[in-house]
Design a protein around this nucleic acid. Sequence first.
DNA 1: TTGTATGCGTTATCAA
DNA 2: TTGATAACGCATACAA
Lengths: 339, 339
Amino acid sequence: MRVTIRDVARAAGVSVSTASRALTGARPVGPQIAERVRAAATALGYRQNRVASALRTQRTDTIGMVVPQISNPFYPVLVEAIERCLGDGNRQLLLCDAQRDAAIESARIHALADRQVDGLIVVPVSTVASAAALTAIAAEVPVVQVDRSVADTALDWVGVDDVAGLRLLTEHLAQVGARSAVLVGTVSESSAGRRRLAEFGPAAARHGLVTAEPLLGAYGAEWGVRAVDELRERGPLPDAIVCVNDEIALGVLQGLRAAGVSVPGEVLVTGFDDNGFAALADPPLTTVRQPHQQIAAECLRLLDRPRGGPTRRIALAPTLVVRGSTTARRPVAGTAQDG
Amino acid sequence: MRVTIRDVARAAGVSVSTASRALTGARPVGPQIAERVRAAATALGYRQNRVASALRTQRTDTIGMVVPQISNPFYPVLVEAIERCLGDGNRQLLLCDAQRDAAIESARIHALADRQVDGLIVVPVSTVASAAALTAIAAEVPVVQVDRSVADTALDWVGVDDVAGLRLLTEHLAQVGARSAVLVGTVSESSAGRRRLAEFGPAAARHGLVTAEPLLGAYGAEWGVRAVDELRERGPLPDAIVCVNDEIALGVLQGLRAAGVSVPGEVLVTGFDDNGFAALADPPLTTVRQPHQQIAAECLRLLDRPRGGPTRRIALAPTLVVRGSTTARRPVAGTAQDG
DNA sequence: TTGTATGCGTTATCAA
DNA sequence: TTGATAACGCATACAA
């Protein structure tokens, strides 16, 4: 940035302060003067030095966001939803990745805060390990948690209503005739995974589904594949396999395929999130779609509201997306041993 | 940020400049003084105001990145590769999304430049529409293009070697017995898509594959599904369908499945990129894996090299990943009309 | 309405 | 080696 406001002021024949006022519109300025300044600015290709401006005003028109792992397909769509909400306004979203590491996450959070972002949207890596940094930074800059949350209850949160999601799923499974179901989840510190784990039992009971001990493993499709093996070692498969996210469900589908188990003929499978690939699976995956746009909107609303209000936790209702993994085209034909 | 370097200096009983020197290590400082300053800093919880520092030093230890659409699964893994290269160093990656819009992309690029990023990594939205902003900003800050590129040849670029990728694919297809192939690509302004389109013909010819007119459509799986319809309307299917990316290929697989066409029995299918879902498809997708980590490393190397050198275009060799979509487990049994 | 002067927090220059 | 001082570019309090 070579051309400064001084150059503009000189070119327009006014003082620096007048030029500043004309460009920011902070104070009234004579109409012809304003025009002269604007003309000079565009003629010289002036662009405001946001760093200097930020130092002076303590504002950056920038909001920072930290996600645990951007390659988790849920986060890109969330990011895009937030950008859509931000619209063409002058506010910028700056995104950072925490590499699933609370220490790196802390560094990212501080880096963004040190760069004076006006607000911080964080999907905490860990319920416990993320708490300290997040709570500390919340004293400096408005913070909103999305999707996951830390134990600290003094921080705003917005995400999907997991209880509602699991009810939708178990209700649907019961409707299509399932009598038993098992959950495939994660041992992770992710609060979302934990909530879904906790809510599965009650939701299943509510709809008369018999449940077995949940299978817990790592996040990702590989775990889904292995979970099928573990499940088959246990004995006969349940009527339905409920997965806490779509990646695991896609792995489960692959594992079942490899084992020659027909879906939905012999077992029903469900996911959670409706990532872009759920619809492309074979069979297409029944899942629960997160209300991304609403989550994004609430998120920004919380960031923008005046400080000092009560802590808010906003759980938004998801929608059920029924696909082939729970709805057989042809009626199930007894005990098909193999394909 | 409440506690400033003045507070630290006062607490340590030294001048502000000494405190600064002790903390940054820019100049030598007495050992016990240095210790006093550091102790005071940690005691007070001092964190450097990066905005003020940036204004003074013209550096931010931050590099900006702009991608066309973060929900395209290729970019998250690229981002992660770059973060891995950055390592634990003090440099920060700030990511922005251009929403596939060159105007928004320009805004993002300027926003990052205005915030004094030390370098800019850009995957240009469009070969033509992105050129102006990118070329202009390259005069202010080091810029490296990745994956896609604009027409301007004065900008560094690093990406996958598409020629090599298509050769690997066509060679493999010829080896497994294909005699004809058709490309399913995009009409987009993406330079990568264009290169792959341009290179498909020569690569196919090189390995004796008969080709028909390529099918061009929008980016994404939906287009892959429709492409199957278009292809079947044309008449008998070719031996192989080569897709310019994995998303399209996954759509093609779904379209073929819906049409009752067996893969790889009746037709072979290949993708490009090896996104995380290619291995989970049914059948698993043969594709070409991009050398993400190498791309990331070259990218940073280009950013960090002294300015003023010659423009570099670095194409890195991909690797072939053979999976079920081109390799039948059981030999193809004549004309299986249906499953 | 406009101009002058000051300060945001830090680092660099200069003199001691 | 250390300290006083100026300057980075901008926005604002105050005076005119």
